[in-house]
């Protein structure tokens, strides 16, 4: 059977969860190092890269056939890694020479958490739908 019953957004959402999880670690690092001298906050972004991959424009490890498995079986989303940078921001945080603003990081971690849970929920519903159809609605 060549049809991929796990089609739809399963691979995409799996990747989103990976990326959101990593972003969570990045923000947690910022919070942990809020008082470390010389530390500047790291920022992770991946939405643009993800969008490119979704539209099939992503460079890197690409698969020629959507049925080919990547390392997770996510096919064309496998190569999306997101990028982390430490932009020099003008904010001085609370003025102690460390530019991390804990309050901002808290807001960021909160938003990231909600988006993670949203993606997990969407993935869960996707599998529920497949199971429902397999049961023929009985």
């Amino acid at each position: 059977m060549s049809a991929d019953i796990f089609g739809g957004n399963a691979g995409f959402l799996h990747k989103v969860l990976d990326l959101r999880g990593e972003k969570h670690q990045v923000i947690a690092s910022n919070i942990a190092n809020a008082d470390t001298p010389g530390y500047s906050p790291a920022r992770m972004s991946f939405q643009e890269e993800l969008k490119q991959a979704a539209e099939g424009n992503h460079m890197g490890m690409s698969t020629t056939d959507p049925a080919h498995m990547g390392t997770h079986g996510n096919g064309r989303f496998d190569a999306v890694t997101g990028s982390i940078s430490r932009p020099l921001e003008n904010s001085e945080g609370i003025g102690d020479g460390n530019p991390v603003s804990v309050d901002q990081e808290m807001v960021r971690i909160s938003e990231n958490q909600i988006r993670y849970e949203a993606a997990a929920q969407m993935l869960s519903r996707h599998f529920d739908k497949i199971k429902f159809v397999i049961r023929s609605g009985k």
């Binding site: 947690a28 919070i31 942990a32 808290m106 971690i109 849970e117």
Partner: peptide
């Protein structure tokens, strides 16, 4: 703040 960060990991 770090307690919140840990709780967040746990919830996820």
């Amino acid at each position: 703040a770090n307690v919140t960060s840990i709780k967040s990991s746990q919830r996820m």
